[in-house]
Design a protein around this nucleic acid. Structure first.
Length: 212
DNA sequence: CCCTGATTCGC
DNA sequence: GCGAATCAGG
């Protein structure tokens, strides 16, 4: 692959957006992250400060990583400060036969149907109606216990920190600050860690049997 | 280990 | 100009 105008343009765009070299390489295809970095330097783009405004003396310390900047988006209503009692992380979640839950970017976790959550009733992700929500009793007690335990050790990653090898199980309420992704090592080829795979993927028969 | 960007240097 | 190898770091 060569650096065609289009590819260079895409590179510039993504780099400006704060995408990492490896992400850009993946997107472009046919090049490694090294190639991307090399190109970035040759193009003189290495200083990701973006504009050239004011930046004299002293590096901005935290160069505003992608993760840092990507955090805030999903806030619907401002909800004037006010002391919001910390909602405890919902423990139980949907357990669809096929993974209907987080799908990387769209990950708008349906808030657990276990904890009512104060104030914020429940922000429906928007768009289509939610898929049938499996009730808590459709999940085996063992899996549930395992999940509760594991979530205490979650790495609490933000959306942007997820990779192909991190568990993408959402924890907490996306409408509050108590929201993150599990982030523990995911099972090879699976989107979740062992514990979360346990509640995400279940044989239909097992679910039916447990159902009330 | 996973990941990041920076630099070097033979091609 | 290109990018693998390497370095330095989180």
């Amino acid at each position: 692959m060569s650096w065609t105008d289009e590819r260079v343009e895409l590179l510039k765009r993504m780099w400006a957006e704060g995408q990492s070299a490896s992400q850009i390489a993946k997107e472009l295809g046919g090049v490694t992250r090294n190639a991307v970095i090399g190109k970035v330097h040759r193009l003189g783009l290495s200083n990701r400060a973006g504009d050239g405004a004011t930046e004299r003396d002293e590096a901005p310390e935290a160069p505003a990583t992608a993760a840092a900047r990507a955090e805030p988006p999903a806030r619907a209503a401002p909800e004037p400060a006010a002391a919001r009692p910390a909602p405890e992380p919902a423990a139980a979640r949907p357990a669809p036969e096929r993974p209907a839950v987080p799908q990387p970017a769209a990950a708008a976790a349906p808030s657990g149907n276990v904890t009512p959550l104060p104030i914020r009733k429940a922000i429906v992700p928007a768009g289509q109606p939610l898929p049938p929500q499996p009730s808590i009793n459709e999940i085996s007690p063992e899996a549930l216990a395992s999940v509760r335990e594991v979530e205490k050790r979650a790495r609490k990653l933000t959306l942007m920190e997820l990779t192909e090898r991190t568990c993408k199980w959402p924890i907490g309420d996306p409408a509050t600050d108590d929201f993150w992704f599990c982030g523990l090592p995911s099972l090879p080829g699976k989107p979740y860690c062992e514990a979360h795979v346990g509640v995400a993927f279940q044989p239909m028969s097992a679910r039916r049997d447990r159902r009330r």
